[in-house]
């Protein structure tokens, strides 16, 4: 992520290629060839195979029943209420967690940026949750919200609707409380990542500009909205893009905390169940193709929304 990336991506007029340049170019191609082949084998091939399988009725354990069904799997999925329900869940988790993370992550980034004393310790402690494996953090939060040995019920018993003892609040017994627990664990785990990306953007904002606006009489609030945030747009886009795509593919927390019970399944979890547990290679592949297309669409949408040139953003962030 240096400026070289940006210059390489910027179109420019080519000088007449010398023999040396041609030779270097050829060597370069030879050097990357093995990597390209490996990438094709491990990513492109499975993707093409998924596309192919999605056109079949195919179950791992009834191979004789395999038949070409065209786009019927897609039709089944797109007209199924379970698919739309799970997509809705995924969107809720994505929107809520990214929105909260953006605000909290920005506050953390400001703290990390401005703090004068104990800088190392504060930065490290903010980043710790990101260093913890998602499955481990999901278990930790499952215990925290647990009816029997969790602390959430006893700490927050003063809030209306939260109870301890015999009628203790069963967080994983109903849809929205369970979704809340999942979203909390997701936010806790990935806010540091967001703040790290925002910190990078924050350090790019020129101090001179902030001082100049201060001299001009801008209040703290005005400096934030008129100077700092507009200059961080590219960094914010990268942060939101990365996190939104990540959150849309949420799986681990749900697998550990509810296993999809109380209708808390996400799109990835549905795909996992179809392919891995039910051996529905055809339907499952169709689901994963749809998931892939949704993620592409989402990425495209976010890039359009922030109106930022990706190449420039990479150079800046």
């Amino acid at each position: 992520m240096t400026t070289t990336v940006a210059t390489a991506a910027t179109p420019r007029k080519r000088q007449a290629a010398t023999d040396r340049a041609v030779a270097e170019n050829r060597l370069g191609l030879k050097l990357v060839a093995p990597a390209v082949v490996v990438m094709l084998v491990v990513t492109a091939w499975p993707m093409i195979q998924a596309l192919y399988l999605s056109l079949y009725r195919y179950r791992l354990t009834t191979p004789n029943d395999r038949a070409f069904v065209g786009l019927r799997n897609y039709g089944t999925i797109l007209t199924d209420s379970l698919f739309w329900h799970d997509t809705f869940n995924t969107v809720v988790i994505m929107v809520v967690s990214v929105a909260v993370e953006l605000v909290v992550g920005f506050i953390f980034a400001m703290v990390m940026h401005r703090v004068i004393f104990a800088r190392g310790i504060i930065r490290t402690s903010i980043l710790i949750p990101y260093g913890i494996i998602t499955v481990v953090s999901a278990f930790a939060w499952q215990f925290a919200f647990s009816l029997n040995n969790g602390f959430v019920n006893s700490w927050f018993a003063w809030l209306p609707g939260i109870q301890t003892g015999a009628d203790a609040t069963n967080w994983f017994g109903h849809h929205w409380p369970a979704m809340f627990a999942i979203i909390v664990s997701e936010i806790w785990k990935t806010t540091p990542f967001m703040s790290l990306l925002l910190l990078a953007g924050l350090s790019q904002v020129s101090e001179d500009m902030i001082e100049a606006s201060q001299v001009d009489g801008a209040t703290w609030w005005q400096r934030l909205w008129k100077v700092i945030l507009p200059n961080m747009r590219a960094a914010i886009m990268v942060a939101v893009l990365f996190r939104a795509l990540d959150a849309f593919r949420i799986f681990d927390n749900i697998y550990v905390m509810t296993r999809g019970a109380q209708n808390t399944e996400s799109s990835s979890f549905l795909t996992y169940r179809q392919v891995i547990e039910q051996f529905q290679l055809g339907l499952g592949s169709a689901l994963s193709v749809l998931l892939f297309l949704t993620v592409l669409l989402l990425a495209f949408g976010i890039v359009k929304l922030f109106r930022v040139d990706l190449a420039r953003a990479r150079g800046e962030a």
Partner: peptide
């Protein structure tokens, strides 16, 4: 009964 039949024939997701 109708849901089982839909699932078996790949007309519904489970």
């Amino acid at each position: 009964a109708s849901f089982i039949s839909d699932v078996l024939h790949g007309r519904s997701l489970l």
